[in-house]
């Protein structure tokens, strides 16, 4: 009986966590085919906690009473603040994930890596040609890459990190830029690299060189700046800033909407 009650309490706690802001959503009409989840045990830096199944690592840590200062950022998988390393019992392999995007698993041992002391070169993008030489001058350690592929295995964004490092060593800036585009700069690759390269800093250099020197500048943009530099549009806009609301409304309602080309 005591056990039944405790299971019931666990379910209630779980529902409480899942529906943390009930007033914003509508009344509950949960279907019977989706029963509430159970409880899992996790080990945060070696300490055991029971948390509801289905929580992200971040919410599970908060559920366990942790308040983040470091190790928590956008909470949406964009900023790389919450890089987390974990291991499952009986498995020697280290796994990684973003705490805000990774769901807890029963038995996981985890810790966060909120900061990593990485080498960052200082350069002037405008004066740096998009060449292999530029990458090597700024990051000579690039040449130390062993091709071990640990960076790829550790990337929470599933990027082909070793492949774009190989492209970097060939001076294929465009390929590095495109392949590394989804990098969040969380630092996990650098933390595991036996050659002590900082893949994410090398790749942002490549992306900026690509954006600045390889992608052609937008001509329509340059044309518009020429117009703005000679003062075009200012008088027209000034005409609107002083106009009565009724007139602005009329102009707004009369706008033609650009059709999407197929």
């Amino acid at each position: 009986m005591a056990e039944t009650q405790s299971a019931r309490e666990r379910q209630l706690t779980l529902l409480d966590v899942l529906a943390r802001k009930p007033e914003a959503a509508a009344p509950s009409k949960a279907a019977p085919d989706e029963g509430p989840a159970g409880i899992v045990e996790i080990n945060i830096m070696g300490k055991r906690y029971e948390v509801p199944e289905g929580l992200t690592i971040m919410k599970a840590m908060e559920y366990s009473g942790y308040s983040f200062v470091r190790g928590c950022g956008c909470r949406g998988g964009f900023c790389g603040a919450c890089a987390t390393v974990y291991r499952m019992p009986g498995d020697y392999r280290l796994k990684v994930g973003l705490a805000c995007q990774t769901v807890v698993e029963d038995g996981m041992y985890l810790t966060q890596i909120p900061f990593y002391p990485a080498n960052k070169a200082v350069y002037d993008v405008a004066e740096t040609p998009p060449t292999l030489g530029s990458l090597l001058v700024n990051y000579p350690e690039l040449a130390r890459c062993l091709g071990c592929n640990t960076c790829t295995k550790v990337c929470p964004q599933d990027l082909q990190v070793m492949e774009f490092m190989a492209a970097a060593m060939r001076g294929d800036i465009a390929r590095v830029a495109v392949m590394s585009f989804d990098c969040l700069m969380c630092g996990l690759c650098a933390s595991r690299c036996p050659a002590e390269t900082v893949q994410y800093n090398i790749s942002i250099l490549a992306r900026r060189l690509y954006g600045r020197h390889i992608a052609p500048p937008a001509k329509h943009l340059a044309d518009r700046l020429t117009e703005l530099d000679r003062g075009d549009y200012v008088a027209e806009v000034d005409g609107l800033t002083g106009a009565p609301t009724a007139e602005i409304k009329k102009l707004y309602d009369a706008r033609d909407i650009e059709e999407e080309a197929d």
């Binding site: 992306r207 900026r208 600045r212 992608a215």
Partner: peptide
Amino acid sequence: LEELGTMF
């Protein structure tokens, strides 16, 4: 942004 090398 274009001059800073932003990849639009």
